[in-house]
């Protein structure tokens, strides 16, 4: 697979993995979304932001092909390999399913790869736990691992770090970026964390049933539509995050937040990327 550095190559040259034009979904007598345009290129992180009910998940489902749009259409490159973390997922308790078994739910993987992926996300110790017994944040980590272990061309992450602890949240976003860098996949990210979105993504699309504004994080952050939707304090999202943004790289290339790395200095060789000191 060709490695692409998104900030070097010009967007026009990069393969568009999936795109939707003029998308509209009409349900229960109203348009949930309308006139939404979006394209995800290889190596690009596109994030969807917007208040609750603004149609983010709906847009993601249309892009995935799970929901047929009533207007517009979606086109994807053929043989597109997708990894998906849905916003909600409830697994019936009558199904005995360990974290390890969950990893090969939609495709087979070598045990070695599964271990490595679980390690990356900091839940190796939970490999044999039943998924129904996981805590909210642990389950979310498991779902993320399951999606990335597929080595997808396109990752669709609908609020992937909901319920993940503070240090883990930053580490997981770093991991997502890292996967994009290493595997060159395209990522559609839905998140309410404006700081992360502004600092970690290439293109931001601001939704409110329709596309309010879109573009680079900087241009969106100064757009009056964005400010109207999220309030004046949202403008700080870019500045604030960049100010506090601080992480360090471990010898093996893994990335950990600075505070976590310092507190774990004694045993830095096996710091989990989530930086939890008590694992």
């Amino acid at each position: 697979m060709q490695q692409i550095a998104p900030d070097i190559a010009s967007p026009a040259e990069i393969e568009i993995l999936v795109s939707g034009g003029d998308l509209g979904v009409y349900r229960g007598g109203k348009w949930l979304i309308r006139g939404v345009d979006l394209a995800i290129r290889r190596g690009e992180i596109v994030s969807l932001i917007g208040p609750n009910g603004s149609g983010k998940s709906t847009t993601a489902k249309v892009i995935l092909g799970n929901l047929k749009p009533d207007e517009g259409n979606v086109s994807a490159v053929s043989g597109l390999r997708v990894g998906y973390v849905p916003q909600t997922l409830h697994i019936n308790w009558t199904l005995p399913l360990t974290v390890r078994r969950l990893m090969s739910l939609t495709g087979r993987h070598r045990a070695r790869d599964i271990d490595a992926a679980l390690d990356d996300v900091g839940i190796r110790h939970l490999a044999r736990a039943e998924v129904q017994h996981l805590s909210g944040g642990e389950f979310q980590r498991a779902l993320l691992t399951r999606a990335i272990i597929r080595r997808p061309d396109l990752l669709v992450l609908d609020e992937p770090v909901q319920g993940v602890d503070f240090a883990g949240e930053i580490a997981l976003y770093e991991l997502i970026r890292d996967i994009r860098d290493r595997q060159g996949c395209g990522i559609l990210l839905i998140s309410h964390d404006l700081h992360i979105v502004m600092a970690q993504t290439d293109t931001v699309i601001c939704l409110s049933g329709h596309v309010c504004c879109s573009g680079t994080p900087k241009s969106v952050a100064s757009n009056p539509e964005y400010l109207r939707l999220f309030g004046p304090r949202a403008a700080d999202a870019v500045a604030v995050y960049q100010h506090h943004h601080d992480h360090t790289h471990l010898p093996d290339g893994r990335v950990v937040p600075l505070e976590a790395a310092q507190s774990e200095h004694k045993s830095s060789a096996d710091v989990p990327p989530d930086g939890r000191p008590d694992v």
């Binding site: 489902k61 995935l64 092909g65 799970n66 390999r81 997708v82 990894g83 998906y84 849905p86 997922l89 697994i91 019936n92 199904l95 399913l97 969950l102 739910l105 939609t106 495709g107 597929r150 669709v156």
Partner: peptide, 19 residues
């Protein structure tokens, strides 16, 4: 077996990942 099990866990997930 595999697609059915994936669909049992989540139809949405199975559909998105082409099953």
């Amino acid at each position: 077996w595999h697609p059915l099990l994936a669909a049992t866990v989540s139809e949405e997930l199975a559909a998105a990942e082409g099953l």
